[in-house]
Design a protein around this nucleic acid. Structure first.
Lengths: 341, 341
DNA sequence: TTGAAAGCGCTAACAG
DNA sequence: CTGTTAGCGCTTTCAA
């Protein structure tokens, strides 16, 4: 039964309860400096009995050290980002750093607001998705004086450093695989891309590589919002009704590709003979579909891991060396929906 | 070109640059108190030019006000939680409060750590999943002196208040629907439940309601980890090989139910005639499957909304009235996998 | 090994 | 409308 006068407890309370100076209490609670076993014991007992929870606000102000890492991502609804986050968390769990997540909804203005808000807590580092930011955001990141890792994408110049894959190259690789497999009349289905720079870059790499081989994207369908699986069905149906002779469909992500796959199977269409399919992202969810979708790993776990490692090492030692650009190599999995050649 | 000596800017810098006292600068930046348009202009210009970002650490310490709401959930990999989060964010966006997410991985010890960590930042409120917490966690929540909303579940006594559904009742309702539709040999497939209290409560309500009608769960299969869709296939196959005469399968979530559905369709089994299926959660993803799965809405968006509203109103006015228990009513969607009666 | 004093950068409260 | 003063609860620094 601790006297609970509703005022949050302070170091002073623990100090009085244990008969040890505030300073020494602070040392015990942080495992910092030498304290005799006896006083340490007294302090810990008192703290536990009172149910003392340190005030990090005060601690951070006094030490000008904040063990937070800002992680800024476009969305939590796309499983890619929780997976990146999982990689980050796993690495940071072995340090005293803590990730704090901000979501931008793919909107530059919101990114700016979220970034401002997070920087006002003076985090020790920033991990932020993408290389495209407003000028104001870039200025904030530059002048924050902390490590900044831009993740997911390496097609561009990072503010500080970047970890990701080249989406242009990913698009090119898939185009090459498709052409090599003998497909010639190719359709594209994806999100509306103005704000999804990575999807756009993949598409650019894709069309460019096709062009080099004299192939063109015959037609395209775009969507936004809603259940991706259902959208995948709808887009596929619409596209094939317009262009029944397409022999390959390239989707900007695995969820809509899965919807397309289910639709085509219901139509009894021969896959990958009559039509081939490919997605992007290697979503684990898809393991369990009637066919294994051709796709490409986006290395998201590794991206999270590497980004967190860079932050951790640079926070531990501001002079630690680090790669300016860490480009990972995604691999194609042809699955069952792309002819082998 | 601002002189960047790498030291974060302070109010004093803005004060000097604008020739206005720190206090007035502070007032301008917070829109607090009356400031003449002229000085306001001078201050804002100076702040923008310098690229000043306020230090919330210092501000929070001085004002003992922190605009953070701790949101503690078991996982981000289960789409339910990002959706609850979305509801919370939407409501808090209209206030000056900000959600900060912590993830527990369904582990009570981790919940305790995360809670301690978050409380040490002295948030204005806590939204936490579930009613089951360690004694230490409960003690922390009680003595924090801030609004605490326990979400997702109302089968139990909240520390402060709760918003959710009764999972026992949800299980009961589904059992009744199944029996009414004429199914009699029922199998259950789900996660290993020791730590997933809500899944456990649904199961308990389910078996209890069946028992009342003289029906028993014939057999069960459990899983943990891995791709839910694939697991759903595997569990379904295993269960039906063991008990070929089952006529209904109740899954603890929609993803494994979807896997089961795909498997059964491939086996050319008549659904819902020969076997009926039902899941739980009404995951939007499933919109687009070959059949509409029978399921039950878990009201997660509404839960997030309501919880955030309670926090917001109680932060705005500590004496604001609020319901101790807000029980929402999930509804069954029989879809195409449960016979209509 | 322990303690005392002096801030960290901001805001509440008051005075002009 | 603007400025001054005194902290917020800790940690740094220095002295004992």
């Amino acid at each position: 039964m601790t006297a609970n006068d509703n005022r949050p407890l302070t170091l002073r309370d623990v100090s009085e309860a244990s008969g040890v100076s505030e300073m020494t209490v602070s040392r015990v609670l942080r495992n910092k400096g030498d304290v005799s076993a006896a006083t340490r014991e007294r302090v810990l007992t008192a703290a536990k009995e009172l149910g003392y929870v340190p005030n990090k606000i005060a601690g951070a102000l006094a030490s000008s050290r904040v063990n937070l890492v800002a992680v800024i991502i476009p969305s939590l609804r796309n499983m890619v980002f929780p997976e990146v986050l999982a990689g980050i968390s796993r690495v940071l769990e072995d340090t005293d750093l803590q990730p704090v997540v901000g979501v931008t909804d793919y909107l530059p203005e919101k990114e700016e607001r979220v970034l401002y808000e997070m920087l006002s807590w003076r985090p020790s580092g920033v991990i932020i998705a993408g290389l495209e930011h407003s000028d104001a955001s870039k200025a904030m990141l530059k002048s924050a004086g902390i490590p900044v890792v831009e993740i997911m994408d390496t097609d561009g110049t990072p503010i500080d450093c970047s970890v990701g894959i080249s989406h242009r190259r990913a698009g090119r690789q898939m185009a090459e695989a498709i052409v090599k497999a003998g497909y010639e009349r190719i359709g594209f289905l994806g999100t509306k891309m103005p704000l999804d720079h990575r999807a756009r870059k993949r598409f650019e790499g894709f069309t460019e590589a096709l062009a080099k081989r004299g192939v063109e994207v015959v037609d395209q369908e775009f969507y936004s919002g809603g259940s991706a699986l259902k959208k995948g069905r709808e887009l596929t149906k619409a596209l094939l009704e317009r262009d029944p002779d397409l022999d390959f469909l390239y989707y900007s992500n695995d969820m809509i590709a899965a919807g397309g796959l289910l639709y085509l199977l219901e139509q009894q269409i021969d896959i990958p003979g009559r039509i081939g399919l490919a997605g992007f992202n290697d979503v684990e969810l898809l393991d369990g579909l009637p066919r294994r979708l051709a796709t490409m790993d986006s290395c998201r776990n590794e991206i999270g891991t590497k980004a967190a490692q860079i932050i951790a090492s640079r926070v531990a030692d501001p002079n630690a060396a680090y790669e300016e650009v860490t480009e990972l190599s995604p691999t194609i999995d042809v699955g069952d929906t792309l002819k082998r050649w």
